[in-house]
Amino acid sequence: MRRIALVTLVVDDYDEAIRFYTQALGFDLVEDTERPDGSRWVVVEPGSAGAEGPGTALLLARAKDDAQRGRVGDQTGGRVGFFLHTDDFARDHARMLAEGVTFLEEPRHEPYGSVAVFEDLYGNRWDLLQPAG
């Protein structure tokens, strides 16, 4: 079996990113390890919030320089770049709203499933998606 295990997400601050992903989105903190260079290896994953078993986790990497800081919140040029699948759209949508997550649209029910675009704390766009069927 092969899969993409981690995707790097450049962030401004480790602790604020951990709080957002674990509290607002309900992710699990898998690892938070200090590295000799002063950085940290921080991994979060949807865990029980995911709908399809083991999937891709996020490596939260603090920006190191101006070029990286310029990409925080715009890693995909303003497009939806991340897709959070759920087995209960209404539950997760309501929970995220209660946690202050900004949705850019009302939920839509498309042939492929229920979906709504939201932003993470830096402005990266995500789909919350419950696939049809």
Rank of each mutant, 00 (worst) to 15 (best):
R35T: 12
H109F: 12
F103A: 00
Y14H: 11
Y14W: 13
I18P: 00
D127I: 05
E31P: 07
D66T: 12
R91Y: 10
K64W: 10
G26W: 03
R19M: 11
V72T: 01
P131Y: 11
D37W: 05
A51E: 04
E106N: 10
D12Q: 12
G73M: 09
A49E: 15
G77P: 07
M96C: 06
R79M: 14
A51N: 10
E16M: 09
A63Q: 04
V44T: 02
A90K: 13
D13E: 04
V30A: 11
G77C: 00
F89L: 04
A63P: 02
E52A: 14
T33H: 11
P131V: 13
D12P: 05
L84C: 05
A49N: 13
F103N: 05
D15L: 14
Y21G: 00
P36M: 08
R35G: 05
F83N: 15
R2I: 15
E106L: 13
Q75N: 08
D120N: 01
L9K: 15
D15K: 08
F103L: 02
Q68D: 12
F118D: 00
G26T: 01
H93T: 04
D12Y: 12
T56P: 10
W126M: 02
V30Y: 10
V10F: 15
V11C: 11
V80M: 05
P36F: 13
G77I: 08
E105A: 13
E52Q: 15
D13C: 09
P54C: 00
G38L: 06
A5S: 15
V101H: 06
R125V: 09
L60Y: 01
Y112S: 11
F83K: 10
D92K: 09
G133F: 07
G50M: 04
D66M: 09
D65K: 04
W126N: 02
E99N: 14
R69P: 02
D88R: 06
T86D: 00
N124E: 14
E45M: 10
F103R: 01
L121A: 09
D12T: 13
F118G: 00
P46E: 04
T8V: 15
A98Y: 07
P107Q: 09
G81E: 05
G53P: 02
E110Y: 09
G78A: 08
A67I: 12
A116C: 09
F27V: 07
I18H: 00
L84A: 10
L84K: 03
D120A: 01
V117K: 06
T102M: 13
A17F: 00
G78C: 09
V7D: 10
R35A: 14
P36K: 08
